[in-house]
Amino acid sequence: MIAPVRALQRPQGGLAGLWLALVIAAALLAPILSPYAFDAQDLPNAYRPASAAHWLGTDEFGRDLLTRLVWGARTSLSVAATAIAISVFCGMVLGAAAAWFGGWLDRAVTVVVDLTWSFPEILIALILVAIIGPGTLGTMIAISVAYLAQFTRLTRAQILTLKGETFIEAARSLGASNGHILFRHLLPNALAPVLVSAMLATGDAIILEATLGFFGLGAQPPVPSWGGMMSAGSALVFKAPWIIIYPGLAVAITVVAINLYGDALIAALDIRQKLRRSP
């Protein structure tokens, strides 16, 4: 059986998978599930706590909080996942090229990556959003650049280790071309640790996206994002604490679930050793 399924069979992996499936399904089906529009204001009913009509209550404009939470999941998850996907793709190309060609290319990539690596991701992301401008696209690009160094390093280290394996020399002795060795041997063997690390980075990226949203740099109102909702709620902690609590819980539980599932995946793939060795 394949590793992602085996990870689900572990207790913590299964529980985490269940939550993630729930959040993703809710995010996908948001327009169908909710009777309210995410930007439908109802000022007489502002600041209402949970009730039968509004399961999680309403915010300062009387908008349904659950609806906004589910639409926020759409923004937060898609931005984080897309950003990490871009980052993984570019990181693998850069890392593989550096390890494969070596020489000046490797030195250049290593220097740039090490420089980026020495700054916290949040700083890189903030600078980039400041340059590109706030919004969903800006956040996405900023997050993908912030995590680029991680995947480049990991891929490069994997390929360098694999290059010395005898089965690469064996393939060469059979007359294999460089393309064959790269795409049939090196990249498939490097893929598992990179994907697991991408899984775990997605959790961090959700937090980063929420942070940027909290600073008002993410999705612009009225489009909801978890960070933006928390930002709005932060001024109302004492008046209507649920406005900040629910998106905060959504971020926390989702990130914990991603990490738990990632751990289960590492155990299922049996690659703890590889991940520790590489970065």
Partner: peptide
């Protein structure tokens, strides 16, 4: 052709024996 010393690292761990033995024809 060559037979290598270490049979533990001379076969790609991700390939089945069918894939290993088909590789010479493939390349």
């Amino acid at each position: 052709a060559m037979v290598f010393q270490d049979p533990y690292s001379s076969l790609d761990p991700r390939h089945t024996l069918t894939q290993v033995l088909a590789e010479p024809f493939q390349v």
